[in-house]
Design a protein around this nucleic acid. Structure first.
Lengths: 196, 196
DNA sequence: AGTATTATGGAACGATCATTCTATAATGGA
DNA sequence: TCCATTATAGAATGATCGTTCCATAATACT
């Protein structure tokens, strides 16, 4: 019994997320968001509530996609070291090609906002934790398969990989050089090698 | 033959840098900078030329300080592994205590600006390179002392340490948890262990 | 002492910011 | 078909942005 929406909220959110991801929170204006989504200010506000709320919805959306991507990458029928290596290699491809130079949206929010925005910091922390948990689960399975030493601390390795990937992506923003990034990646993956 | 400055340009720049470091570029307004430095807009503009120029001066200042800090930490009469470990341990102390939660100013600029600001990206890349070179030099000396395998690629290790430290500091912004950060640090330092 | 020159404080500027408001359009149910 | 309800476009709002300008203050040199 009312006028129906003319837009799809899901694709609008996706486009808003892309805008925040590419430019950052403060650098993305409401005009930018309206242009990106094709919505008017009224529609944006009634559907999402404001810029900050839209950022949080964007973070949730990104987290879901990131969880899916990591899960997919680590579910491949490969030794975990090769699965992780493939995941990182794709990241590097995207950094070198250009689109990956926006970095990780979660990491971007951590860098720009975590210090002075408790709510966003909490969301960032939780998102990183979820991704870390996916790594940990995959590593534990690999450990069961005998790919990792039974003494290996899979939780610590997972945490290390998440931090290392953040570092890789951050450095890649300023220096999208394939050789440099692959060198970093290969040393990062050493944590999955059995000690000789 | 004219009116002299009432302020010290060096301390003004230091305070401006602190403001940019703590809040980021876009989030630091000219009012913030005037408050932080104690200068009027006129003085700021005549002395530094504008917000963006002030950022670049701040980056240069931070780079010099960072170079000095890293050089000092790696010049201690210790095995390089312990020197690096001490450096990272102090970073973690500052993150956990609070002040270190601003992260690395260079990394912050990389995250916020590198993608859309070529000049800043170049400065960031050069600064990271300089710091990387300090690590590499220290590692090469340690290699000469026999602390590292003669086959070790000190340039790659240096690059890896810089990226890893950026990741550590970024993750520390959202999750300033000592145990987690120390776990990451200890795995990072594994690249300096002789393989068994 | 007078003057040229630079520094300073703060007002003024236009642009842009996020948000709210208003008028109009479009629907489903009566 | 008319009404209650929600959606939309875009104007309006006040705050704040970075920058410029101007009047005044303070010095060094003649």
């Amino acid at each position: 019994m009312a006028r129906p929406r003319e837009f799809d909220a899901d694709t609008a959110l996706e486009r808003a997320m892309q805008a925040f991801w590419a430019r950052g929170y403060k650098a993305t204006s409401l005009d930018d968001l309206c242009t990106a989504t094709g919505l008017s200010r009224s529609s944006l506000y009634s559907a999402f509530g404001g810029k900050r709320a839209l950022l949080h919805r964007s973070l949730e959306r990104y987290e879901a996609q990131a969880v899916a991507r990591v899960t997919a990458a680590l579910s491949r029928p490969l030794p975990v070291r090769e699965a992780v290596a493939g995941f990182v290699a794709e990241l590097i491809d995207r950094i070198v090609a250009g689109p990956g130079r926006s970095g990780c949206f979660i990491g971007n929010c951590a860098g720009e906002l975590a210090r002075h925005d408790r709510a966003t910091a909490t969301k960032v922390r939780q998102s990183l934790q979820k991704i870390e948990n996916i790594f940990e689960t995959a590593l534990a399975k690999a450990q069961d398969r005998g790919e990792l030493a039974s003494a290996a601390d899979v939780a610590s390795i997972a945490r290390f990989l998440v931090a290392g990937i953040q570092g890789l992506r951050l450095v890649g923003k300023a220096n999208p050089d394939r050789a440099a990034l692959e060198s970093i990646a290969s040393m990062l993956l050493a944590c999955l090698e059995p000690k000789e």
